[in-house]
């Protein structure tokens, strides 16, 4: 079973980034009123960085991410500049954990973290239904493993 993050995960990440950008901009504007308006120039690289992450990095990050679950193990792949692949054998997995924030709940997505012996891998937000499917699948595979 291969699961990829939906497009709305990208939108969610962009919203989060937007909030951070607005907060930082607010701080810069406030400080410029206190000290010098020259500080407002800092908004230019900040805005450029926001545009770069928003329109270049996030779409590529989303399309590069995939979670592959089989009876053998879980493989989580992601990365734009540095490609990373985490491979966790199912039998070495200890527990799974789903995390939902108010924003991600509104988008119907959640992240799943796989905790193994000396390992923890967290996926970017995927559809809640997909997360449930993965968790159930791993539960079944582990149960089969215990029986063996």
């Amino acid at each position: 079973m291969t699961v990829t993050p939906p497009k709305k995960t990208g939108t969610l990440l962009k919203i989060r980034l937007g909030i951070i950008f607005l907060l930082l901009s607010g701080i810069i504007v406030y400080l410029s009123f206190l000290f010098s308006f020259a500080l407002l120039y800092a908004l230019i690289p900040l805005f450029a960085l926001y545009l770069f992450i928003s329109f270049f990095y996030i779409p590529r990050f989303i399309s590069s991410t995939s979670v592959y679950v089989s009876s053998e193990g879980v493989t989580v792949t992601y990365g734009v500049f540095i490609k990373t692949e985490h491979i966790l054998p199912v039998l070495r997995l200890v527990f799974t954990e789903t995390t939902v924030t108010p924003l991600s709940r509104a988008f119907g997505v959640c992240s799943v973290s796989f905790s193994g012996v000396k390992a923890k891998v967290k996926t970017p937000e995927i559809l809640i239904a997909d997360a449930m499917k993965i968790t159930k699948y791993i539960e079944n595979e582990k149960a089969k493993g215990y029986e063996r």
Binding site: V94, F95, V100, P102, E139, Y146
Partner: peptide, 13 residues
């Protein structure tokens, strides 16, 4: 509540 977590822990683990 704000960030909701749900862990599924096999008893055998």
């Amino acid at each position: 509540v704000i960030i909701k977590k749900r862990a599924a822990l096999p008893i055998a683990e």
